[in-house]
Simulated assay, not measured.
Amino acid sequence: MRGTGERAPRSTEELLALARGGDGEAFRRLVEPHRRELQVHCYRVLGSVQDAEDLVQETLLAAWRGIGGFEGRASVRTWLYRIATNRCLNALRDGARRPHERALHQPGVPLPEPSHRRAEPSWLEPCPDVLLDEVPDLAPGPEARYELGESVSLAFLAALQELPPRQRVVLVLRDVLGFRAAEVAAVLETTENAVNGALKRARAVLARELPGADRESAPLPGSPRERRVVADFTRAFQAGDVDAVVALLTDDVRLTMPPLPLEYRGLADVRNFLGSVSLCGRSRHVLVPTRANGQPAFGCYLRDPRTPVLHAHGVLVLTLSGDRVAALTRFVDNSLLAVFGLPRSLRAGWDGNGG
């Protein structure tokens, strides 16, 4: 412990010198400013908030063990990104973090034939906005193509999952974080030509996979326009009014249910799904508002007239376009509610508005 008269180190160089000498507090001060952005980076690559937190812990442990060999030829931030990226690649390659042991959702009623069926399940999970709000407001590098909001949107992340692991991390490092090709090559221990080739292929896949909706038309978060759309949707969905819900959707709306590899596209198919699955029967939904991936979201609960308890029914995220809903993403894993600080059940007195 330092004496009361000692000056606390302030520069990166001072902190590095102390950390190399085994000073844990100096190391913490060195890496803590980067923790949250590293977690969001790992989330983009892996698609799971919970896995991303684990990978950040592994990254910081590896950094602490290797701080003595860090020569400072790159910034601490770049060094940490190198460790985190390679940890993510290892996780994707070995598949150990994919929840294969988790059975796919078994609906209570048969699902209608989807408009489109992906080859593999999507292990994408939603990310609470409170986590994103803690990311430092850093200007991306000159190579960046995507702003923070775009790069954590569910559409962008779902498209990323279509990429092989190395293409995925190349696109994130180059087009999201704005790293130069030479920096990415150093992170991946490869050549700039290999990086540029992977980036070209990754961009082609994203151009094909990303919906063509005008992202600029979405209402601002928390604006009266957004609140109005969300209130109308909540009222219609909780009432089980299929026609009222459909009236709020865009013509090219998409409905997905990760990890199920099913997509329902367009008003007719989404209407059929809502009427035959989501909003059929005697049970009614109660939607508890939250936010995920920069968009309005809800913890979903079922109100069963035969019991006083409202049971968890996953997480629903809306993607807005203008005054309409362009996508409904229903996450069927009830354990995700805890990520948003929501309970697994509610008392029957809940009215959907916090009462």
Rank of each mutant, 00 (worst) to 15 (best):
R2N: 11
G3R: 15
T4E: 13
E6A: 14
R7C: 05
R7Y: 11
A8N: 10
A8F: 12
A8E: 13
R10I: 11
S11M: 08
L15C: 00
L15G: 00
L18I: 08
R20N: 03
D23R: 07
G24E: 15
R28G: 06
P33Q: 04
P33W: 08
R36V: 14
R36E: 14
L38P: 04
H41I: 04
C42I: 09
V45E: 11
V45W: 09
L46F: 11
G47C: 10
D51H: 14
A52E: 03
L55S: 05
Q57W: 10
E58A: 12
L61P: 00
A63I: 07
R65H: 14
G66T: 03
I67W: 05
G69Q: 14
R73W: 12
R77K: 13
R82L: 10
R82Q: 12
A84M: 04
D94W: 12
L104P: 10
E120M: 11
S122N: 07
L124N: 05
P126N: 10
P128E: 02
E134A: 15
E134C: 13
E134V: 07
L138D: 14
G141P: 03
P142R: 14
A144N: 04
R145Q: 14
V152R: 00
L163T: 01
P164W: 09
V172R: 00
L173Y: 03
R174M: 07
L188F: 10
T190G: 06
N193E: 15
V195A: 06
G197P: 02
A198K: 11
R201L: 13
L206V: 05
E209H: 09
L220M: 10
S223V: 09
P224L: 08
R225A: 15
E226N: 07
R228A: 12
D232S: 12
F233Q: 01
Q238L: 06
D243V: 10
A247G: 11
L255H: 04
P258N: 06
P259F: 02
P259N: 01
P259L: 02
E263I: 08
E263M: 08
G266Y: 06
S276W: 00
C280A: 15
R284A: 05
R291H: 13
G294I: 00
Q295L: 01
G299F: 03
G314K: 02
L316H: 04
L316D: 01
A327I: 03
L328V: 04
T329Y: 11
V332E: 12
L336P: 02
L336W: 01
F340Q: 01
L342K: 05
P343F: 13
S345I: 02
R347G: 15
G349Q: 14
